[in-house]
Write a protein that binds this DNA or RNA. Structure first.
Lengths: 233, 233
DNA sequence: ATATAGTGTGTATTACTTACACTAAGTAAT
DNA sequence: ATTACTTAGTGTAAGTAATACACACTATAT
């Protein structure tokens, strides 16, 4: 299939891979998905989920596949954000890695059963309490977090982390965790509601031992419109 | 050097390349640098400058080298912004391309004498009047323009396009061209000056057949500080 | 009934954004 | 020297958005 390449293009043995920073919001914490590696190099180390891009898949397809293998989920919000290509970032050769971040609704306890051989297991870890990571994955994570910090200020991506029905406090929580600072409750609500993408439901939170909060969902049509525009938080 | 790769990593013949969208501002126009290709595929077509990443250079180094070969200039502001990896984007094989944009002070008439064999010649072309481009380079350009539109709103990168001494009208011009809309002169000046990174010089524009404007330069120290923060234009 | 813990609401002040039009200064032509 | 031309340079008022701030309400648990 790639005979032409050998004949015409200057090339050397090289590989590209995808690495994913998968954010999830659960029990008031911002977490990312890590795996424990089952292969050399860095066997038994913790790492970001990632894999080699196959010859017949595009980068986006590859990222989607990796997440599917890991979580069983499709239709996840993801976005490519940076490509890491230092010469020695992989001890076994030249591997350029294209990084994606993903935002995931944790909601129910979705069991993580990686279908891949390269990972022993997968688990969620609070972003403020990460172990030492393999390769340059700490750097990849740092840049990913920085990216969604910027992004959340200008586009309504926070919803991607929440279940279908959520309270305003939960939404505020997501913003506070990503931005790393406290926000004023009244101002937050005023502003959020002013975007006009939230729909108040006739339903309240359940199972809490205090006053139950109203549940909201977001209006997908208006949300899609807003997504195109720049908002400012 | 990359023996390990052959032994351990799944791989196939593949290559990565860098493509650059080099913006320049000249005579009131926003331009980019194009080359006329001297090699197959797409021989004689116009294309963005770009090249294969060498085995011993990082992505940033490679991008810097490409610009140096093309313009003779070093120390150019550039930033990686997206990686294009569709399976069939290159007719001869799998080539993933990491895209950079660069902002360049045109100022004097710097002759463009490409030192590379793959380009017959290089020239500047107004962004609103681009010819048909090779590969997926139109798409790469589109995304690059979109990127600096976003970026210029939040970070003071416009200066990178201007000569050391410039007038406020020139600065406004850059903003208008990138954002693609007219701005109010008084409001623009008010806001720009409020950032506190501009220094008024004791010097005026020369060689114009009308009232000469004051020249400004920007204060690099304050500029560096501001660069870290988010501004909003 | 009482303690507890989180929900939900309004206003006043300040800062920022927008819209808008004329005079000043220099050059070129007569 | 006068005039015509072209761009430079300036202020204010009105509207909009951001911020700071405190207490009563409601559901549950004991």
């Amino acid at each position: 299939m790639f005979n032409d390449l050998e004949e015409h293009l200057p090339h050397f043995n090289s590989t590209f891979s995808i690495d994913c920073v998968v954010f999830g919001f659960d029990e008031g914490e911002l977490k990312i998905l890590l795996i424990e590696r089952n292969e050399e190099p860095f066997k038994d180390w913790y790492a970001l989920p990632g894999n080699i891009v196959g010859p017949d898949e595009s980068l986006d397809q590859s990222a989607t596949r990796i997440l599917k293998e890991l979580t069983g989920l499709g239709d996840i919000f993801m976005e490519q954000y940076y490509t890491f290509g230092d010469v020695n970032r992989h001890p076994q050769g030249r591997v350029v890695s294209i990084a994606y971040y993903a935002l995931l609704r944790l909601g129910g306890d979705k069991a993580l059963k990686p279908l891949t051989s390269y990972a022993k297991k997968a688990f969620w870890k609070n972003v403020n309490d990460l172990p030492k990571l393999a390769f340059d994955h700490q750097q990849i994570f740092d840049k990913g977090l920085e990216k969604i910090k910027r992004r959340i200020k200008h586009q309504p991506i926070a919803f991607e982390l929440l279940p279908e029905k959520f309270t305003l406090t939960q939404l505020q929580n997501v913003y506070e965790l990503i931005l790393g600072k406290k926000l004023d409750k009244r101002n937050f609500r005023k502003k959020m509601l002013s975007f006009g993408v939230l729909k108040e439901l006739d339903e309240k939170q359940k199972g809490v031992s205090f006053r139950a909060a109203m549940l909201y969902k977001f209006d997908k049509r208006k949300y899609a419109k807003l997504f195109g525009k720049e908002i400012s938080f």
